[in-house]
Design a protein around this nucleic acid. Structure first.
Lengths: 137, 137
DNA sequence: TACTGACTTGGAGTGCACTCCAAGCAACAA
DNA sequence: TTGTTGCTTGGAGTGCACTCCAAGTCAGTA
């Protein structure tokens, strides 16, 4: 679930990055970056005179946010919905707030569930270790 | 991600439950319960004289654990692996401990990621609310 | 006896989120 | 000039975790 293989280092502050630079920065594949654009999750990516994608720092910020939302299990369709609201302008701010408020509750619940499971895992590990060291008769 | 629609009430302590009782208890569909059994995640489910499944309290406990592991994103294949280790007997305990220790780290990392995202969400919500109430010039 | 409803099976289908493919173009090195 | 590398596209393919279907069995009720 966490992108441990990503370089996570933003290249020189040149404000235009190739798809492979962005791939290594975000940990997403170039395929996925193109797919994100196709489904409307990433809009208005600039192009060079030869038609190659040039991502800006703004795009990288957006991808950071998207990445965090993905990590919390937000469906891609919901993120596309959010992207559409942002495109639609400032009058959609109440709806965006609502979207985030609802998602915040989802995240809270997930943390709760994870904590419960962590406790179970700790208990199991202790049990297995106890059994291994012969503490149970 | 959380099973809010599940009844989560264990039926009378009769130690044999029908597939629909177990479905309503676990929040899993009957389809999924049969599929779990087919892939080896749930083994040795008893049958009535007419061939219908009769789940025990032990099965319900097992499904509780499985459900928690699923909630933390453990792939079904890994849970099947764990089920195989349990079937194989006590000599697999060290491997089971190892499996849980590794998963514990995954869960810890997830909690970390979720907390980071929660902070971003809080920040965004505050920003949108500030913008709505005209606090930004 | 007829019907209803809950169960059984193997196999096919679904939705999501990618992931890959083939064919082609542009820039550069040997 | 001939690779090689890195990019482009639309469309097809993949893997996971279910989810459903058709055809059949069995128990209970009108």
């Amino acid at each position: 679930m966490s992108l441990t293989t990503a370089a996570r280092v933003r290249p020189v502050g040149q404000d235009h990055y190739s798809i492979s630079e962005v791939a290594s920065y975000t940990g997403l594949s170039a395929h996925t970056l193109r797919w994100y654009e196709r489904i409307g999750l990433l809009n208005g990516v600039h192009r060079s005179h030869t038609g190659q994608r040039l991502y800006t720092d703004g795009d990288l910020d957006w991808l950071d946010l998207i990445g965090k939302l993905r990590l919390t299990g937000m469906p891609v369709a919901d993120m596309v919905r959010y992207a559409e609201l942002v495109r639609a302008g400032d009058q959609t701010m109440p709806e965006r707030t609502q979207l985030f408020r609802e998602h915040r509750e989802v995240v809270r619940q997930q943390i709760e569930d994870l904590r419960t499971t962590l406790a179970v895992l700790d208990f199991k590990i202790e049990f297995y270790e106890g059994a291994a060291s012969g503490c149970t008769p």
